[in-house]
Amino acid sequence: MRPYLSVWKLRFILGMQYRSAAIAGIATQLFFGMIFLMIFQAFYSGSAAEPPMPLDRLVSYVWLQQIFLSLIMLWFRDNEIFQLITSGNVAYELCRPCGLYSFWYAKLLGQRLSSATLRCFPILLIVFFLPKPFRLSPPASPEAFVLFLAALALGLLVVVGVSMFIYISVFWTLSPVGSTLMISVAGEFFAGMIIPVPLMPHWLQTVAGFLPFRWTADFPFRVYSGDIPAGEALWGIAAQLVWIAALTAAGAWTLRRALRRIVVQGG
C-alpha cells in the first residue's frame, strides 16, 4: 500500500504545480456543463409529453458528470504505459516485485483520484450556488448519498477495469490510437455522457444495460438524484461488483497471456 500512496502523493504535488491548468480545467468543465444544460432545457421546454427524467434530476446528472469527469472518462490516457508496451520495455517491468496488473491498476486509479481531488471541490462549490435552473440540488436523501458514494467508488473500479483492456489491447495492435478511440467513443456514449441513458430510445437502453459503461457514470448519478430508488440501487451495486470481478479477472488473464507471448517471442 505504501508505494501506491507515495505515487499518489507525488502526482498530487505535480498536479498542484500546474495550478493554471487546474483552473482552466474547472472553467472548461463549468462551461461545458452550462452548454449541455441549456441544450437539454431547450429541448425540455418544447416538450408536450412528460420527459422520462425530470429537469432537476437531469441537472444533477450533468453536473455530476462534469465534477467527476476524471473519474469516469475513458480517454484518460497514460502514455507511459503505452510507450512501455510499444517499445517492448515492458519486459523490464516484470522485474518489479508486484504483479503488473495490480501495479498498473493502482497507477491508473491514483492518477484519476489525484486529478479528481484537485478539481471536483471547486466545481462542486460553484454549482451548488448557481442561479436556479442550473443549481445542483442536494442528494435525494441521506441513504441516497451514501449509496451514491459507494456506487461512484465502485464505478471508478469498473472504469479502471475497462481502461486496462485498452492498454492490454496495445500488446496486439501496437498502436494506442485505434483501440482508445473505439472503446472511448462507444464507452462515452453508453455511459450516458452524450445524452443521458434514460433519454435514449428503449432498445438502446437495453443495449446499454448489457454493457459495463453505464455502471460507471449513469448509475451512480441517478442514485444521487433518487432517479434510481434505494432498493434498486442495492441491486445495482451488486451488479457493479459482478462487473468488477469479471473485468479484473478477464483483464489479469489476458495480460498474462499477452506477457507470455512477449516472453516467448523474446520481446
Binding site: I13, M16, R19
Partner: peptide, 13 residues
C-alpha cells in the same frame, strides 16, 4: 523559483 515539498507547492499556488 520552485520549491520542493507539499507545503511549498501549496504556497507557490
Amino acid at each position: 523559483r520552485r520549491a520542493a515539498g507539499l507545503r511549498q507547492a501549496a504556497k507557490s499556488l
